[in-house]
Design a protein around this nucleic acid. Structure first.
Lengths: 234, 234
DNA sequence: CGTATACATTCTGTATACTATAGAAGGCAA
DNA sequence: TTGCCTTCTATAGTATACAGAATGTATACG
């Protein structure tokens, strides 16, 4: 019995570590080390690897250790193309199909998100936000859209790690605005207002896109030539 | 070396068998039997199971044997909602991103599809058609859309098995029309005409949808009451 | 005669031992 | 000295044995 628990623990640990970039994109996963750390033999560990690979968290290569899924400028471009469409569809369907129980779950997730904004760490905020959107996916309940949606959420979370770190007033404003949008999304879903829900998906995406653009193209350092010691994070 | 080949053989065998409904939706997979048939021990077989589960071919349940992914009225409803959007996006991106090599590959796939229509079996046609569309997915090359696209293709293939069996003139016409649409799709992609490509996706989907509707709601048997011996296939 | 419980059998899950392969390092030859 | 080939080592992959869970059947009791 304990073994199955350890296996689940490992899977959720890896998911969280990858979503929060505690394990960074492209990082190698050491099978032996993980076996030791979680008290599992190689077989179940490898099965977890395959499972996470199917979900898009990690990449498997033949005769080589698995790696955390990469996150490059190419994938980011794909992300910008796919996200608005999928997010819109998911929230529209969420408004159409959500059950009362799910709406309560979404309210709970938003409560935890707000709590994380108040007094949580950056990973806490990212995971809470991720959970909120995962629930909207469960509400939509379309088995064909969910796999793409989940992959988008994975990379959205990883990018978010940079901007749920409210280092300045602008970011703090954005995060507060995102939280307000979450509330509006809950209301639209509860009211079964598909059009409004889709509109909010677009708004929420635009806000996020703004942050992502700032992540990709950060404002240049305003330092006179010759004084720069390190370039801005890629 | 041979073992890895057998593993690959098993994976492709299962994929084909599931796509062509040789293994029917919901059917149990007997681990021991498959081990014996493909000369593999349980470990690699189970890894293949997990891989196929990630791709959407089969479902895994705890402490129970795996099953071929189900195909019910619920999933069919999801299919109708998601397919037009994803197919449209994929073909639009295919027109945008296709390389010359890929276009040649698509031409080859269409050639094989035509050959299968001429003198192939129903599974041959289904697999050839599946391959054609898989290549369009490769052309689009958007890692976030592909997982959903692949799941749609799996179930599209399984449904197609009923209507690539040209039992009457209407079906034969539809299949011929589908083939012509494939040609048009190749032309649109080669011409980098995104709008035309998206339009053809919609046309192609509508044709397919027509067949699927006939699959779901077959025309009632025109037999006087009291003479019916067996109902039409579900 | 029906139902419930206990036991047995079968199958899923895990651990460990063994095999194969890829990468690295060192040696030999040019 | 450098380039290539060979060998060695570390790691991925496979097989098998063992443990545990679930289901089905049989028997006993109500």
């Amino acid at each position: 019995m304990a073994a199955k628990d350890r296996k689940t623990t490992l899977a959720t640990h890896l998911k969280h570590a990858i979503l929060t970039t505690a394990r960074q994109p492209g990082a190698d996963l050491d099978e032996a080390a993980i076996c030791a750390e979680f008290g599992l033999s190689r077989t179940p560990v490898r099965e977890v690897f395959r499972e996470l690979a199917g979900l898009g968290y990690i990449d498997l290569r033949d005769n080589r250790g698995p790696r955390v899924a990469d996150l490059t400028h190419t994938t980011l471009r794909d992300f910008f193309l796919a996200a608005p469409m999928i997010y819109g569809a998911i929230l529209r369907l969420a408004a159409r199909n959500a059950t009362d129980v799910q709406i309560q779950a979404l309210r709970g997730a938003q409560e935890r998100f707000r709590a994380a904004l108040r007094d949580g760490s950056t990973p806490d905020r990212t995971l809470a936000n991720n959970r909120f959107h995962e629930i909207t996916g469960e509400m939509a309940g379309n088995i064909y859209l969910l796999p793409s949606f989940h992959r988008l959420l994975i990379d959205h979370a990883r990018i978010s790690m940079t901007f749920y770190r409210p280092e300045n007033a602008t970011m703090a404003d954005s995060v507060a605005e995102a939280s307000r949008q979450h509330d509006a999304i809950i209301d639209a879903i509860a009211a079964r207002d598909e059009a409004q829900s889709a509109q909010l998906a677009e708004d929420h995406w635009n806000l996020s896109r703004h942050e992502i653009e700032r992540f990709v193209m950060p404002t240049a350092l305003e330092v006179p030539m010759g004084q720069i010691t390190r370039s801005s994070p890629a």
